[in-house]
Simulated scan of single mutants.
Amino acid sequence: MRRCLQWLGGGSAQAAGIQVGGMSGCLCRSAAAARSKVASLRKRAKVNGGRLEFIPPQIPTRVEEPPEDEGWVHEVNLDGYRTQIIIDKGGVRLYSNNGRDWTTKYWPIALAAELPCRAAIIDGEVIVPGEQGDPDCPALEAAIWNEPSRLVFVAFDILHLDGRNLASLPLLQRKQALWQLVGHDLGKIQYSEHFESSALAIFRAIEKVGLESIISKRVDSRYRSGPSNTWLRAKYFEEADF
Score class of each variant (00 low, 15 high):
residue 2 R to N: 10
residue 4 C to H: 10
residue 5 L to Q: 03
residue 6 Q to H: 12
residue 7 W to K: 14
residue 7 W to E: 14
residue 8 L to T: 14
residue 8 L to I: 13
residue 9 G to Q: 00
residue 18 I to V: 15
residue 19 Q to D: 01
residue 22 G to Y: 06
residue 32 A to W: 06
residue 33 A to I: 09
residue 35 R to P: 06
residue 36 S to L: 15
residue 37 K to L: 15
residue 39 A to I: 02
residue 40 S to V: 11
residue 44 R to I: 01
residue 45 A to R: 04
residue 45 A to Y: 04
residue 46 K to L: 01
residue 46 K to R: 08
residue 48 N to L: 15
residue 48 N to S: 15
residue 52 L to H: 06
residue 53 E to T: 05
residue 55 I to E: 13
residue 57 P to D: 06
residue 57 P to T: 04
residue 59 I to W: 04
residue 61 T to Y: 09
residue 61 T to V: 14
residue 63 V to D: 10
residue 64 E to K: 07
residue 70 E to V: 13
residue 75 E to A: 05
residue 83 T to H: 02
residue 84 Q to L: 10
residue 89 K to F: 08
residue 92 V to W: 01
residue 92 V to T: 09
residue 94 L to K: 07
residue 95 Y to D: 03
residue 99 G to R: 12
residue 100 R to W: 04
residue 102 W to P: 07
residue 102 W to K: 13
residue 104 T to P: 04
residue 109 I to A: 02
residue 109 I to W: 05
residue 110 A to L: 10
residue 110 A to W: 07
residue 112 A to G: 11
residue 112 A to S: 15
residue 114 E to C: 14
residue 116 P to R: 05
residue 117 C to R: 11
residue 119 A to N: 05
residue 124 G to N: 15
residue 126 V to I: 10
residue 126 V to T: 00
residue 128 V to M: 00
residue 130 G to W: 04
residue 131 E to A: 13
residue 133 G to Q: 10
residue 136 D to L: 09
residue 140 L to K: 03
residue 141 E to K: 10
residue 141 E to D: 06
residue 141 E to F: 12
residue 142 A to M: 00
residue 144 I to M: 06
residue 145 W to V: 15
residue 148 P to G: 10
residue 153 F to A: 02
residue 154 V to Q: 09
residue 157 D to Y: 12
residue 158 I to S: 05
residue 160 H to G: 01
residue 162 D to L: 06
residue 163 G to W: 09
residue 163 G to N: 09
residue 166 L to S: 04
residue 168 S to A: 14
residue 174 R to P: 00
residue 183 G to T: 09
residue 184 H to G: 01
residue 185 D to R: 13
residue 187 G to A: 14
residue 191 Y to T: 02
residue 192 S to Q: 12
residue 194 H to C: 12
residue 195 F to S: 11
residue 199 A to F: 14
residue 201 A to V: 03
residue 204 R to A: 08
residue 205 A to S: 04
residue 207 E to G: 06
residue 208 K to I: 02
residue 210 G to Q: 10
residue 210 G to R: 01
residue 210 G to N: 02
residue 212 E to I: 09
residue 213 S to H: 08
residue 214 I to A: 01
residue 216 S to C: 03
residue 217 K to S: 04
residue 221 S to M: 05
residue 222 R to M: 13
residue 222 R to D: 12
residue 223 Y to H: 12
residue 224 R to K: 08
residue 232 L to F: 05
residue 234 A to W: 07
residue 239 E to W: 04
residue 240 A to Y: 12
